[in-house]
Structure formats: structure tokens, C-alpha cells
Amino acid sequence: MDRGRALVYATAAVIVGVTVLSGPAIGLVDLTTPRYDMSGLGEGNVTVDEVELPPSVAIDRGYQSQSYYLTVPDARIRIAAIDGKPTVAYGIDIPALGYSRSTTHFLSDGDTGWASLSLREDTLPDDAVDTGRYDGTLSLVVRDSDGKTVLANRTVPVEVSE
């Protein structure tokens, strides 16, 4: 048996071996751990000493399509101290459109300093948008062991561009 072939068989043996040894039948090691442990979510404490919300929000006509895209720039918070796994929800309300959406971010131990919080963009139908400008409310809500705390809540202009 030449070297190349031996190498191929050895590689196959390692791959199969590791897979079987870590499998449910033998279970020597567990290689498949969730990247983010969801237990204890929303528990702990966080101290935020500074909050930056974007000054405005945009609704743009989609490229080559009739529908509109709502894009909310990132918010930023400065975390002074953190303990456990609190969450922070970044949300927008546009009452005139009957629109509300938020994205929850998970924080974890050691996430001190500035953190960017995004809000996923969304599509609005062609017929939903009828004026050039709306009022929207941006909010940041922390959930930790003390329950819900509103970090920031600000009314911003929602600019529609065709």
C-alpha cells in the first residue's frame, strides 16, 4: 500500500472515528454545543451609561420594484457593567402606518463598552405609503432580573424618498 492511499484511509478513519466517538451511542465528547446557550436569557443585570439613537429613519423605493424598504440605522449603547444574560430590544413604531417591529439582541458577560444594535430592514407594500413623511418612535428596552426597563424612547422623522 503506497503512502497516498494509507493517508486517505487514515483520514477516513479519523473522520469516521471522531464522528462515532462523539455520537450518541458512545458519547465520549459532545462536539455539537449550541453556539449560544439560551438558558437564563433575560436574567442578570446591565448598567448602560450612554445611548445613541439615529436622528431619522428612511423609507426608500426598492430597486426596480414598486415596494418600499424601511431602513433603520443602528443604535449604539455604552455598557458600563454587565452580569448574566440580559437582552435589549431595539424597536420602531410608525403609528400612522400601523407598523411596529423590534429586534432583540442578546448580551452576555464581558460585553462592556460600545455595542451596536441593528434593526432588520423590512418591506412595505406599494399602497401602504402615501405621504412623504411620518413620525416614528424608536425605543430601546432592556430585560433583566429587574424586569423591563425603557432605556430610550424618542420620536424621529421617517423620511420617504421615491
Binding site: T19, S22, P24, A25, L31, T32
Partner: peptide
């Protein structure tokens, strides 16, 4: 998947 973790069996 009886002998291998479903999360790893496709990778293998």
C-alpha cells in the same frame, strides 16, 4: 444518526 450526532453526520 444512531451512532453519530446529527449535527456532525453531514459534516463527516
Amino acid at each position: 444518526t444512531a451512532v453519530a450526532d446529527p449535527g456532525l453526520v453531514f459534516a463527516a
